[in-house]
């Protein structure tokens, strides 16, 4: 049981590291949002499952389920809000090959 929980914890830590690295290395804002959101969502998932395996008591598992559900609902909404605000504040990277939102404005 401890070994399984540590495996999940290590995987979660690795994805957190990848999320931080992605936020640091990606060249423009939208790609940073993508890397950050995906990697930290799965990282949080994995860490929470690892902690639940280390403490298989109902009072822990119920709270962990609440955190997982909340994260999976709120994290994509938050990143979507940042992306929309980024676009609306005229911070558009110049490497886009196609821009459907701009076409919407011209119609």
């Amino acid at each position: 049981m401890t070994i399984a929980s540590y495996v999940f914890l290590i995987i979660g830590g690795l994805f957190y590291l990848l999320g931080g690295l992605g936020v640091l290395r990606m060249p423009d804002t939208f790609n940073r949002i993508q890397a950050g959101t995906k990697a930290t969502t799965l990282g949080a998932f994995s860490i929470l499952i690892g902690v639940a395996l280390a403490n298989p008591v109902w009072s822990w598992i119920s709270k962990i389920i609440i955190i997982i559900v909340f994260i999976i609902i709120s994290n994509p909404i938050g990143s979507s809000a940042i992306a929309k605000a980024t676009y609306n504040s005229k911070n558009i990277p110049d490497n886009l090959v196609q821009d459907a939102l701009k076409e919407r404005g011209e119609e």
Binding site: R32, I33, G36, T37, V51, A85
Partner: peptide
């Protein structure tokens, strides 16, 4: 906006640390 993105990621990592 880059700062806001990094703050969002930072918060998610801190949740993991607390758990």
């Amino acid at each position: 906006s880059d700062r806001v993105v990094s703050l969002d990621t930072f918060n998610m990592i801190v949740i993991g640390v607390i758990v």
